[in-house]
């Protein structure tokens, strides 16, 4: 088993190489073929052909596209993601790593909140299915899910900071209590999805024969639900948790913008608008690697938790 697993992980990792190369070429071409480059954006109104030429030469934007790409890849393999034209020649790593920390910190809190709320809500909805409570609970969270973040990120601060005065809106770092409101605004829309998945999973497991057996041998209902139903129903949550990892990366853009949090989503917006080539590429590669790793982790986790799932060569489509 472990032999097969190791082989499988290696195969998956090898598959990610062409996928990531394809993504990087795609984004690279998209940026370079646009009729604007970082120099236009950098100089703006003070555009001067001579200075522009000199700057393009400095960053190597005057060279043929394939040379530029190969140069980028060569630097990448030496751990160099390039330089940011917007941020006065700081390296891309220097620009994005502090922001990744901020976003990752918020993302972890958000995941804990989403699943910490969504799993119990889903279990409860499944247990009371057939009564009016089930559609009411799911409906409530679907309503929360339907509120766009750029509405809730205005109304929630207005209510909790301006009207009730419970929180302060200034950003003081990820570990400061002021982060609670943005984390809630960012997380609550996700609860509905987790609750629905958990509800469906619990109902499906409830119909399994081993649950009937557990009831038949006279176990208390509580024991049946907790250790037979819920435990097994948690399995699909692994996929959900894994897939939510990179999702938070994009989902927090409006929260970061409206709460003034110096995170990665806000940086990516600024980089895209300023055509900061290397920063955009670095962020896209970071996001893609995260996505691919999350998928591999999901598969490995399944292999460990449920030994019935055999990983075979045919998988991975």
């Amino acid at each position: 088993m472990s032999q097969g697993l190791a082989g499988y992980v290696i195969r998956r990792l090898l598959w990610t190489v062409p996928v990531i190369i394809a993504i990087s070429i795609l984004v690279f071409l998209l940026l370079r073929l646009a009729p604007q480059d970082p120099i236009d954006s950098l100089l703006g109104q003070r555009y001067d052909e001579e200075i522009a030429q000199r700057l393009r030469q400095k960053y190597g934007y005057d060279r043929p596209l394939h040379i530029q790409y190969l140069k980028y890849v060569q630097n990448l393999f030496q751990g160099d993601l390039g330089v940011s034209t917007k941020h006065g020649d700081f390296s891309v790593a220097e620009v994005i790593i502090p922001k990744i920390r901020v976003s990752a910190g918020m993302g972890i809190m958000a995941i804990v909140l989403v699943f910490g709320l969504g799993i119990p809500v889903g279990v409860y909805a499944a247990l009371v299915r057939g009564s009016f409570l089930d559609p009411l609970i799911i409906g409530f969270w679907l309503l929360i899910d339907s509120i766009p973040v750029f509405v809730s990120a205005v109304v929630a601060p207005w209510l909790f900071a301006l009207q009730l005065g419970w929180v302060d809106l200034t950003y003081e770092g990820v570990l400061h209590p002021n982060i609670i409101l943005p984390v809630f605004v960012m997380s609550l829309p996700g609860v509905a999805g987790v609750a629905r998945l958990m509800r469906a999973s619990v109902i499906q497991v409830s119909n399994e024969e081993y649950v009937r057996t557990a009831r038949a041998k006279g176990l208390r209902e509580r024991t049946v639900v907790v250790s037979h139903v819920v435990r097994n129903a948690l399995l699909p949550m692994i996929t959900a948790i894994g897939l939510s990892l990179p999702g938070l990366f994009a989902g927090s853009l409006f929260v970061e913008l409206l709460f003034g949090i110096p995170g990665i989503a806000r940086e990516s917006l600024q980089a895209v608008l300023g055509f900061d080539f290397d920063v955009v590429l670095g962020l896209v590669l970071f996001g893609s690697v995260l996505f691919v790793l999350a998928n591999i982790l999901i598969d490995i986790a399944y292999g460990f938790i449920d030994p019935r799932i055999r990983i075979t060569a045919a998988r991975g489509g």
């Binding site: 996928v19 009729p35 604007q36 994009a250 895209v272 962020l283 896209v284």
Partner: peptide, 24 residues
Amino acid sequence: RVGEVLSGVPTLLLMLAISAAFRT
């Protein structure tokens, strides 16, 4: 595989890049 490549890219970021690239 093409689908996998595309779903691997952060969607909103790439949408931003596409619309920013073609807007100029």
